[in-house]
Design a protein around this nucleic acid. Sequence first.
DNA 1: GTCGTTGCAAACATTTTGCACGCAT
DNA 2: ATGCGTGCAAAATGTTTGCAACGAC
Lengths: 155, 155
Amino acid sequence: MEQQGLALQRIKDQLHEANYKLTPQREATVLVLLENEKDHLSAEEIYMLVKLKTPDIGLATVYRTLEMLTELNVLDKVNFNDGLSRYDMRKEGAKHFHHHLLCLECGNIDEIEEDLLGDVEKIVETNFCFKVTDHRLTFHGICQSCQEKNKSSVE
Amino acid sequence: MEQQGLALQRIKDQLHEANYKLTPQREATVLVLLENEKDHLSAEEIYMLVKLKTPDIGLATVYRTLEMLTELNVLDKVNFNDGLSRYDMRKEGAKHFHHHLLCLECGNIDEIEEDLLGDVEKIVETNFCFKVTDHRLTFHGICQSCQEKNKSSVE
DNA sequence: GTCGTTGCAAACATTTTGCACGCAT
DNA sequence: ATGCGTGCAAAATGTTTGCAACGAC
């Protein structure tokens, strides 16, 4: 909770620095994002959650807010393979973008905060002369609980 | 060329195994994909290329063919962040899916065939109990030629 | 004749845009 | 009064689906 207040303040500051105003709609959207940090909500899902508390908001505004926050690097727009964009908070201190584990069976998406790509990025920079600024890494596979589910159903 | 003939034959066999027919439209689509293996074409781009040689084809057929080939693991559907799906041939021998380098300046997408994630996947399997079957890895950054372009324009 | 495949058009889903209005400065 | 921000509706975009017709066996 305290954390969330700090995060909100940080985002407010970023908006002001970039000459954006923190309107009630924008604040409500940011709050929903903070409250659901662990999920990977789509624009529509965010819209519906915001609308519960702030019914006076349009879908277009949510899209515009999400675009703005993505531009400010508060959010990352991520595409898994379900045809729509999802939005993911960039952790405050995190230099790198976290990784994802997508379970092909239940569709659940977990996050890995650990940076696993430090060495790999160095290889890319030296061997391919490519200046890396960011990355997207998603593993596809079977999550722990689905593995257990399968095991017990076989027995 | 010879390689392409072999690849085509292999794909034909896979279709037949799965009880699909190799219709002229499907063959034309596969040929376009083989001829542009290094690109990351969207459905529409593929459609337009196929239509040059085989005008009697509809966009829906291309979509259906791409879906079928994705299901057969001949293709991978990849999403960069431009809002549409792109299709990428899975290399014949390649056990793992190759990685991508997306240049944020010129939009070019390069491929890395080397497997850079062997160790990382092991870590994921043991530390997170996640059975990895595939992955998507894209580095965002500046490609070599854009770096050079920038250097000379500063001087 | 059956059945898989097709082209076309319509439907659909997601995202963007145009516009008139509202509100803070 | 200026200009940013808004909701709504319309448009644009990318993809899927329904359907009648075709063609191989």
